[in-house]
Design a protein around this nucleic acid. Structure first.
Length: 314
DNA sequence: AAGCCCCCCAACCGCGCGCAA
DNA sequence: ATTGCGCGCGGTTGGGGGGCT
């Protein structure tokens, strides 16, 4: 049986999102949280399919997304992780939580692939195609390499979890995520929570920018549904009060134009939002993690010699 | 200035997986 | 065990912008 389309194609809007749509989506998610995407179009009146809404949120509107040029460090991370994990962009993105898988994928396809090609062109072995053949689905990969890669994956995951948990605790003391510190860049779990927790303020900025220069609002069916008046306890911060991390984000904002909108470079700030990361009691898993990996967990992945680790693997 | 070409990236598409009934 | 549904992922596309002639 053929899979039905995720949404009725009739009347579904496609193409670039408008600021109006963004506002509607953000305000809805602000109220209900991300998820249950199926119901988003019907509840918001957006003429978009659920997938489009989810994609727009995860790739663009979600707080904590860092835009702009990739740093050398991020680039190395991507190269390293791509060699490790193959084209599993979501997995790679989990180690660079400020970047979306789409961003990483695009960056790889547009920059790194060429770069790698250039680098590899001098040597006979290891073309990009070969590297991409390292995909997790590659059947030709020797079992030994698989096991070692798996172990590396497990180690990395444990480290990420460890740091996430430790930072979860730190979050209660409103420790700012330091974007200048690469060791924070792979706190997947923590960052997810923290990023989302920060949405409240970020959205307020979004809305503030929106209010400053509102385009011609035509009949916006649902913008009135989600009243912004409940934002009266939002912190109406501007760039001047942004954190150091936020500053770095702002500074690296790409010069998108046309149908893309400025002012969406969300800030990562501590939050008093209702979406604050819940305090999770230590589970058995966490105990195991700390017992087993405490000594190694903070041995920073990023300090690993990339060459060393990849040589070891291949 | 105009036309062409290339690059970039936001968004779309199709598929696989997990879960519930 | 089967089916239907929702979600997430990876590959691909196409439109806009910038550079070059």
């Amino acid at each position: 049986m053929g899979r039905p389309p995720c949404c009725d194609k009739i009347g579904i809007k496609k193409g670039p999102w408008t600021p109006e749509e963004d506002i509607v989506l953000v305000s809805y998610i602000q109220e209900h949280g991300p998820g249950n995407w199926r119901s988003v179009p019907s509840n918001t009146g957006l003429m978009r399919c659920s997938k489009s809404c989810r994609l727009r949120w995860t790739n663009y509107l979600r707080p904590g997304i860092k835009r702009g040029n990739f740093t050398d460090h991020e680039e190395k991370m991507i190269i390293h992780l791509q060699a490790l994990l193959g084209n599993r962009w979501a997995a790679i993105a989990s180690y660079l939580p400020q970047r979306t898988d789409n961003d990483i994928k695009n960056y790889w396809n547009t920059h790194l692939k060429k770069k790698m090609n250039k680098n590899e062109s001098g040597s006979d072995e290891g073309s990009v195609e070969q590297q991409e053949g390292h995909s997790s689905k590659s059947p030709s990969q020797p079992k030994g390499q698989w096991e070692r890669r798996l172990q590396t994956d497990i180690k990395m995951a444990k480290q990420a979890l460890s740091e996430a948990l430790s930072l979860n605790k730190a979050a209660t003391t409103h420790v700012l995520p330091d974007h200048t510190n690469p060791s924070n860049s792979h706190n997947t779990l923590c960052n997810n929570n923290l990023s989302y927790a920060s949405s409240y303020e970020n959205i307020s900025r979004l809305l503030e920018n929106w209010m400053k220069s509102p385009p011609n609002l035509t009949t916006q069916t649902s913008s009135s549904v989600y009243s912004f008046s409940n934002n009266n306890n939002m912190v109406t911060t501007t760039g001047s009060s942004s954190s150091e991390g936020a500053q770095s984000i702002t500074n690296t904002t790409t010069t998108t134009t046309g149908t893309h909108y400025h002012g969406y470079d969300f800030l990562l700030t501590p939050s008093s939002s209702k979406y604050d990361a819940p305090q999770v009691p230590l589970t058995m898993l966490e105990k195991w993690l700390f017992d087993d990996g405490a000594a190694q967990c903070h041995e920073n992945l990023l300090n690993m010699s990339l060459e060393e680790s990849t040589e070891d693997l291949f």
